[in-house]
């Protein structure tokens, strides 16, 4: 678990490969070969660490998709964005997970586990929820090791942690 460490530093250290154009628009990032999640245009960023090889992630995929759908609704009153990071998964393996479970939010490979290490996510599934406190700083507001299970309950939990 990440605890109350320097989340801003950890987030900025992560480098993810540039996603497809639709995801670029959703995330509000600039064109380039790679980007840091700290550049995502969001007040609240939900990061799901998953693995194509993880049965709990496979079982949880429907609930996670529902949760993503809820985050896109205006009734949350928050600019929430979501990404998935495939822990020790290649681009090919991430693409299989995305296709198999019809995942609509952007997924990224983390073949050497660098992103997972930066955010201390040592098991999957693992959720890290980060709030932007100003232009250049972030705060960890919620973290969950284990399945999301109930999308509405998970959203409610996150909303109660937003400051």
């Amino acid at each position: 678990m990440l605890g109350k460490g320097n989340i801003t530093h950890a987030l900025k250290a992560i480098e993810l490969m540039q996603p497809l154009e639709t995801a670029v628009q959703y995330l509000g990032i600039e064109d380039g070969e790679s980007f840091s999640p700290s550049s995502i245009n969001a007040d609240v960023l939900v990061i799901q660490f998953f693995s194509m090889y993880c049965p709990a992630c496979q079982t949880d995929a429907a609930a996670v998709n529902e949760f993503y759908d809820l985050t896109t609704k205006p009734h949350t009153g928050q600019n929430i964005k979501m990404i998935g990071i495939g822990f020790a998964n290649s681009e090919f393996e991430v693409a299989i997970f995305k296709r198999k479970f019809n995942v609509l939010f952007p997924l990224f490979p983390d073949p050497y586990g660098d992103a997972a290490r930066a955010l201390h996510a040592y098991s999957t599934p693992h959720f890290v929820v980060i709030q932007r406190t100003d232009n250049d700083n972030f705060k960890l507001i919620y973290e969950q090791a284990g399945a999301l299970r109930n999308s509405e309950k998970f959203l409610k939990t996150i909303l109660t942690h937003i400051e």
Partner: peptide
């Protein structure tokens, strides 16, 4: 335990 579950979805 982290190998066959992946094969299981392909």
């Amino acid at each position: 335990s982290d190998q066959w579950p992946g094969y299981n979805i392909v």
